[in-house]
Design a protein around this nucleic acid. Structure first.
Lengths: 160, 160
DNA sequence: TATTGTTATACTCTATAACTATA
DNA sequence: TATAGTTATAGAGTATAACAATA
């Protein structure tokens, strides 16, 4: 009988990771950097970047959201969203409205122009994703997204 | 016949991406950040970080590799590896040896201590990965790594 | 002319601390 | 006291330009 492989000397659960390529985290980082570079390039003609796009999409998906809520959803610091909102506001892509019952809070609403821009930005990024994922079947793409979400999303019913 | 779903009004290939969570790249970034933070924490007791670990592992996996080759393999700039190599060298984890036939090149070889340290670092990161991937089966973990590699690795026989 | 290792520097992204106003 | 929005600043990671030595 052909001996293609010797038996693992231990419980497979204890299989030693000994190369960089064995680490899922290494592939995560490489793939994420690859994606980010492509997304930045794809958004260049629209004169925006991935984080501002994510912020605008948050406003569109949840009209009336506050900046603090966006930061919690996207996992970013409140301090860092300030210049991003300032630029999106200057471009007329959303409006701020004081909350009636809590004067600390600004509720953010997309403008018509904001919705149009966001749709255009999404189209650019979608085309980049199609290229990035071209070696994956539709099923593999869905599975990849599902597995990635299981890594970073909370256990509970929460989502962000 | 039960009508569980209405037919998509278009070719499913044209299904519009309209939410942030539909983007694979968004989940890639969130998962990668999640991993990186955990890896940094895991490596803290060993007083190192993910990139220096990757560099040392490259030297161990390919003894005699040059710094320029490491940079090409890891996708980093030559200028940025200099302080990393300086620190690893100061800690006695590898040695530089001039190439005999090309005086421009330094060939890098791990010391015994470097191999021991790298094994300890890998153990720390492996434990972090076990925690990060605890909601995935062993098969899902393997599949995830395969799909991620398909995203960033070259089409050809090359690997890095 | 091209490559290696190196220095210096700039830029981006993210993190921290503190402030004010409101609650 | 806790939170929202803001400012200023610091840090890490990465990118660019240039250099001397070598091919």
């Amino acid at each position: 009988m052909p001996l293609e492989k010797t038996q693992p000397e231990q419980d497979p659960e204890d299989a030693k990771i000994c190369r960089l390529q064995d680490l899922v985290g290494y592939h995560l980082r490489r793939a994420s950097v690859f994606d980010l570079q492509g997304a930045v390039s794809a958004l260049e003609p629209a004169n925006t970047r991935p984080v501002p796009m994510s912020v605008l999409l948050s406003i569109i998906e949840t009209p009336g959201i506050s900046s603090a809520e966006i930061c919690r959803a996207l996992g970013m610091q409140r301090a860092n969203i300030v210049p991003i909102l300032a630029e999106l506001e200057e471009r007329g892509l959303f409006l701020r409205e004081a909350d009636e019952s809590d004067q600390r809070i600004q509720r953010l609403f997309p403008t018509r122009r904001g919705e149009e821009e966001a749709a255009a930005w999404l189209a650019l990024v979608s085309e980049h994703e199609r290229s990035m994922l071209r070696r994956l079947t539709a099923e593999e793409q869905t599975e990849l997204r599902r597995l990635l979400a299981k890594i970073w999303q909370e256990d509970g019913p929460k989502q962000g």
